[in-house]
Structures are given as C-alpha cells and as structure tokens.
C-alpha cells in the first residue's frame, strides 16, 4: 500500500525572543532566545498517527501550533500535500484550514463558556461556510455528536460547558475539530487533564475516527503508555530536538536512546507484581535558553562520556524508518 505523504516538515525552527529588563536591554545588543523547536524534520502519512512524546518544555506543543500556522516559524518548511504552507497568502491559508484542525489539552479552556454546545460544535461550519442551510448544520452536528457518543444529542446541545464533565467537554472539543472533516488533526495532550479512567474512552473514540475516515493525527503527549496504545510511529523530543524516531513497538519495547529508556522506565504500570528496577534519571530538564553543550541530554545521562559533552550527535537512520541521535545508542 503506497503511503501518501500528508505532512512534511523540514528543518523546522522556532525561537522565542525573551524580554530583558530595561537596563539589561540597554547594555546588551544580543537578545537571548528560547530555542523551543530546534531543527526537527519528520513526515506524517495519510491515515497515520504520529506521536510526539516528551516532557514539558521540549517543544512539542509549539511544533503542533506551528504546523497549523497559529504561530509563525522562525525557519524551515512545512508542506501539506505538497503545498508549501509558508508561501501561502492569508486567504489561501484560510481555505486550507478546513483540512487541518487542533484539539487542545485543557477541556476547561478550549470551550467558550458563554456559548452553548451546539454553537461551539457548529461554529467551524459557519466560519468556513460549509453549509447552506440551518438544517444541514443541525444534521451534521447530530452526526458528529453521535459519533462522539454524546447521546442523546438534544440533552447536550443546549447545555453550557460548565454543565459538562471534563471527559464530556473533551469529546465536544473532538467533535468540533472533526465536524469539518479535516484530513489532519493535531491533538495536543487531549487526555492528560482527564481522569485516567476516562482517558481510554476519548482515545478510543479518536482511534475510531482515524480508522474510519483515514484521518492523520499528530498526537502530542508525555505519556508513553498511551502513546504506545494509539500511535503508529513515535518521535521522542528533548529540548527542541528529536532524540529518537521510529515505529511504536520498536521504540517502546527496544529503545535506543537513554532518554527514551528513562521515559519508559518512569511510566507506572498497573500491576503491583510488575514493579521493576527503576532507571531514574537525575535532575530536571535544563533551561532551554542555555542548553547544555554537545548532546543536550549528557548531564542527566548515566551513560554519558567525554564525547557526549563536546559533540552534538546527529539524527541518523540506523534502520529503515528508525532514527536515533546518540553517540552510544543502547543495544548497539
């Protein structure tokens, strides 16, 4: 089966300048930058779920937003079905917006508290002028609410967000993203603020949509266990760079990068007899303004050596579709 490339990202960078204090800005001409996304490249195929895994501050949320052009990238190229997004005018980009949508992390913030659920879900239809009559809009809202298991729709349509639970709100957010039949959705930690027991429902609903409509999904998360469940391929990010990319089972069962190993070891397992020795990484994620020299992970890595401090490892393809950026990949 030929896999058509939907999204192609090349050398994406996004740097945020920091506001200095008044006097400091007078003294220095250099503006310190937060290198949130520092030269990443990847592709997503049609109908594929690509997981972007990492801790807070690694740049995954920024990547998602940049893909949707909610933020302007500092450098790099983004292609959607072969169209260079950065060269489009505002109006042309608007036409493409129908095909790309986003789901946010916070179910409390992503719904306008003053709008009814019906208005929230039907808003993209009206904004993108996809329906001609009110009946059509109503029909599509009903359809998508049933797909999200918010039945009976009448019971939820006229409520306001504060009357729904977190899980229900997140389903509304998914419904809103999906009603325009996009081809690509960025899901930015969609379930991390929900109860662990509800997560599976929302994730399963999203999986259903992916399988039924050949939706491509960029699933951003810090939970390796959940990423394993839903993603086809995973890219692990650390401080704005990829450290490992590959198919999910490969990455989760046979990690090559010490950071990936640490991430997997840190995830608790729902089995009291399954406790294993922890590979705990010391320290915290360093300040992204002044990343460590050489390999960015070296201060926390338990395998680090002299060269790790001096030279930054490149992302190399060690097998087909399997990339790692480490001088001493595990198991090799």
């Amino acid at each position: 089966m030929t896999e058509k490339k939907l999204i192609e990202v090349y050398n994406l960078r996004k740097y945020f300048p920091i506001k200095l204090g008044f006097f400091k800005s007078l003294l220095t001409s250099e503006v310190p930058l937060v290198r949130a996304v520092d030269n990443i490249s990847f592709t997503i195929n049609e109908g594929e779920v690509f997981g972007l895994v990492g801790e807070s501050g690694c740049g995954k949320t920024t990547t998602g937003r940049v893909l949707l052009q909610l933020i302007e990238p500092t450098a790099g190229k983004i292609f959607f079905k072969g169209v260079d997004l950065l060269k489009l005018s505002h109006a042309e980009m608007r036409k493409l917006r129908r095909k790309m949508q986003i789901i946010f992390q916070d179910p409390y913030e992503s719904l306008n508290p003053r709008m009814s659920i019906y208005d929230i879900i039907s808003e993209p239809l009206h904004l993108l002028k996809l329906v001609e009559t009110e009946e059509e809009a109503r029909k599509r809202v009903y359809e998508v609410m049933e797909a999200m298991d918010l039945t009976p729709p009448e019971e939820y349509m006229f409520r306001f967000p504060h009357e729904l639970s977190g899980g229900q709100r997140q389903r509304v957010a998914v419904a809103r993203a999906f009603i325009v039949r996009p081809e690509f959705i960025v899901a930015d930690e969609p379930v991390s603020m929900l109860d662990a027991s509800i997560r599976s429902e929302v994730v399963k609903l999203m999986q259903g949509l992916v399988q039924k409509f050949r939706l491509a999904l960029l699933y951003i998360t810090h939970d390796m266990a959940l990423a394993r469940y839903i993603c086809d391929r995973i890219g692990v990010m650390y401080l704005g760079k990829f450290v490992e990319v590959g198919r999910t089972e490969d990455v989760t069962q046979h990690p090559l990068h010490p950071y990936t190993e640490a991430l997997i070891a840190a995830v608790p397992v729902p089995d009291p007899t399954g406790r294993r020795t922890k590979v705990i990484v010391k320290g915290e994620v360093p300040n992204p303004i002044n990343p460590p020299s050489g390999c960015r992970f070296h201060p926390r890595c338990r395998y680090s050596q002299e060269i790790c401090r001096k030279e930054e490892p490149q992302l190399v393809e060690v097998e087909k579709g399997r990339f790692v950026a480490c001088h001493f990949p595990l198991g090799k």
Partner: peptide
Amino acid sequence: KLINAFPSVLGRKTELSSIRGFP
C-alpha cells in the same frame, strides 16, 4: 474495567476497555 482502561508500556499490547456512560 477500570484496571483494563489503563494502558501498559510493558508486556503485551492489549485492547483498552472503556466504561460506557458517565458517572
């Protein structure tokens, strides 16, 4: 159902269960 709703990063990849309805 609750226990099976939690994905595990180790072991076999199993089907996640979900509990229909709402609390």
